[in-house]
């Protein structure tokens, strides 16, 4: 075949190289972390040992970080979903009026790190809200202001994620509402004798949640692995998973490395498991 007639085609070795890059490198990293956790890789590797795996039962750090991350992700997603549903189902005419359609895109401009910095300056004990409260006579001293950032329950982290997530979910639900022609269903259910509340509870919410399920799960996974916001708004204990692993790996004590590799390996495997559930869910939603 002459070069003129040959179609534009990628040589297959490049496809192999792509597979090696996107799957090979992370999987090699996972394997290295696994080997590191049993003493077979890393700067202090001294032969096979199971003591880091055995120590896992005694160390509450990782399970606590996992529980704390789960709580933050669940609370953030729950509040964001609730707010977005409320706006779409109760205030849609307002959302369509200027300047709100454009305004909902604004949080998409904000990097997580900037949101973390902003909320720290706004909600900390010496922050703007505390200063305004002091000026208004609502508090008499710095310590009287509630601990809203770097707190044990992760309130600051949750608020930051809600601020970033709920506008995005509102835009998503609005799009699904239109695509699913829920306005037509609303008319139909009202004609059949149902009231507006029944339409919202029995028709709109199930349709919106079902179609948005893959994105909701993706948001949950993204919050579970969040790093920038908990790094600024979180405490040294409890920490979220990514901060916990990165902090342990960056310590000067090299003897900490195998346990950090173990934590990285377990978290990565857990998240990949969740992603496989997400892929299955996405396929099912597409088929429906």
């Amino acid at each position: 075949m002459s070069s003129k007639a040959r179609p534009f085609r990628l040589p297959s070795p490049l496809l192999g190289l792509y597979g090696l890059l996107v799957a090979g490198l992370p999987l090699a990293g996972l394997a290295y972390a696994l080997l590191g956790s049993v003493g077979l890789a890393g700067p202090l590797a001294a032969g096979f040992t199971g003591r880091y795996w055995q120590a896992l039962g005694a160390d509450s750090g990782l399970p606590y970080a996992a529980l704390f991350s789960g709580w933050v992700a669940l609370a953030s997603l729950g509040i964001s979903t609730g707010l977005a549903l409320l706006l779409v189902l109760r205030a849609q005419p307002t959302l369509r009026r200027w300047p709100l359609p454009g305004l909902l895109y604004v949080p998409l401009l904000l990097p997580a790190l900037v949101v973390g910095f902003y909320l720290f300056q706004f909600l900390s004990r010496a922050g703007w809200l505390a200063r305004i409260s002091f000026r208004l006579g609502l508090i008499s001293r710095l310590e009287a202001f509630p601990e809203l950032v770097q707190d044990g329950a992760g309130i600051g982290i949750i608020l930051a994620h809600v601020l970033l997530t709920f506008p995005f979910l509102t835009l998503l639900f609005l799009a699904i509402y239109r695509e699913s022609r829920l306005d037509d269903y609303r008319q139909l259910t009202l004609t059949l004798g149902a009231n507006a509340g029944q339409f919202r509870r029995r028709v709109a919410v199930p349709v919106l949640l079902r179609r948005a399920a893959p994105t909701l799960l993706l948001s949950f996974i993204a919050t579970l692995g969040a790093y920038d916001i908990p790094l600024l708004l979180g405490r040294p204990y409890p920490q979220m998973l990514s901060v916990y692993i990165a902090t342990r790996l960056q310590r000067f004590d090299l003897r900490e490395l195998p346990a950090a590799y173990l934590a990285g390996f377990l978290v990565a495997v857990g998240l990949l498991g969740l992603i496989s559930v997400l892929l299955r869910l996405t396929r099912r939603v597409r088929v429906e």
Binding site: G42, Y227, I275
Partner: peptide, 24 residues
């Protein structure tokens, strides 16, 4: 298979991915 592989690095939190590939 290649499509599934494409989700791998994109699915992990960037900082965790960085931690995993850092030795290389």
């Amino acid at each position: 298979r290649l499509e599934a592989a494409s989700y791998l690095p994109y699915a992990l939190p960037p900082v965790l991915l960085a931690v995993l590939i850092q030795p290389f």
